[in-house]
């Protein structure tokens, strides 16, 4: 009988301890001031460049899908529910279709000229880096945590397009023309644009301080501006002419990612 009571007391003690730990864990999520999240995932284009220029469509990869890694979020909660988040999101876009872009250019001249097109430089994967900041709200339920937020910041576009060159020789004629198609992305080859991103993260805490999370960002870039210049060197006329084309459009993408998060009190 005595042993039975002792066992019961021990069980009660354990249960109360577990419950206390559970409560402490739940409280920890409520009380944590910092959350650091690392994620990787994919980028899905929703709305691309509105330009109908077939060359631009094929030569750029700004509106193509891709991936991102490592998305880094640092959230600081200045109250129990409200906080501010800083997000660093580097995207890597799929390369542009240089073959199709070049073929489009060739097709413009093929009826009148023999076209010799040097192969365009392999388009490096474009890197777009977003730096965003905004308010976030914490909703906790057991081990689950939901963090809706509205982020705002800047995008930095870098190295998206290849340059093309065509050597044209007139059919049944002596005219020779060299055409260059060069992308102008400002002096530093980097362009900066605004980005607005309503985002939601869902987190499930595996341990007291560590959780797994999935998130979805809707990225709205209201004004993306890219330009290219064509330079025509006509040897017969001994003259060089240049023309610059400027394209402005909005971009909309959705990112979906998963990763881990660390809670710091």
């Amino acid at each position: 009988m005595k042993a039975y009571f002792l066992f019961l007391a021990a069980m009660l003690c354990c249960i109360s301890r577990i419950e206390a730990q559970k409560k402490e864990q739940l409280d920890y999520a409520e009380q944590s001031k910092f959350i650091l999240s690392l994620e990787a995932g994919g980028l899905i284009p929703v709305h691309g460049f509105s330009s109908q220029d077939p060359f631009l469509k094929n030569a750029t990869n700004i509106d193509k899908g891709g991936g991102f890694f490592p998305l880094t979020r640092v959230t600081y909660f200045f109250s129990k529910k409200w906080g501010a988040e800083f997000e660093f999101l580097p995207w890597i876009l799929k390369p542009s279709n240089t073959g199709q872009a070049q073929q489009y250019l060739i097709n413009q001249y093929i009826s009148k000229y023999y076209v010799n097109a040097s192969s365009p430089m392999t388009n490096p994967d474009a890197l777009v880096v977003s730096f965003m900041i905004g308010p976030t709200y914490k909703i906790t339920s057991g081990r689950f945590m939901i963090l809706p937020k509205l982020l705002f910041g800047i995008n930095s576009y870098d190295g998206m397009m290849s340059n093309y060159s065509l050597h044209l020789k007139e059919k049944n004629g002596n005219e020779i023309i060299d055409n260059q198609y060069n992308w102008n992305q400002d002096a530093s080859s980097t362009q900066v644009g605004w980005v607005l991103s309503p985002t939601c993260s869902f987190s499930y805490r595996l341990l007291r301080r560590i959780g797994i999370n999935v998130s979805a960002n809707y990225l709205y870039c209201p004004s993306v501006r890219i330009t290219y210049t064509t330079t025509e060197q006509n040897y017969k006329l001994q003259q060089q002419t240049s023309q610059t084309y400027v394209y402005k459009s909005s971009l909309q993408n959705v990112t979906v990612g998963a990763g881990i998060s660390f809670l710091i009190k």
Partner: peptide, 18 residues
């Protein structure tokens, strides 16, 4: 010079622009 590269003409008749 009617083709992609100039070649020695085989005939004594040529197009004016070549």
């Amino acid at each position: 010079n009617s083709g992609p590269n100039p070649v020695v003409a085989s005939a004594d008749t040529l197009c004016k622009k070549c």
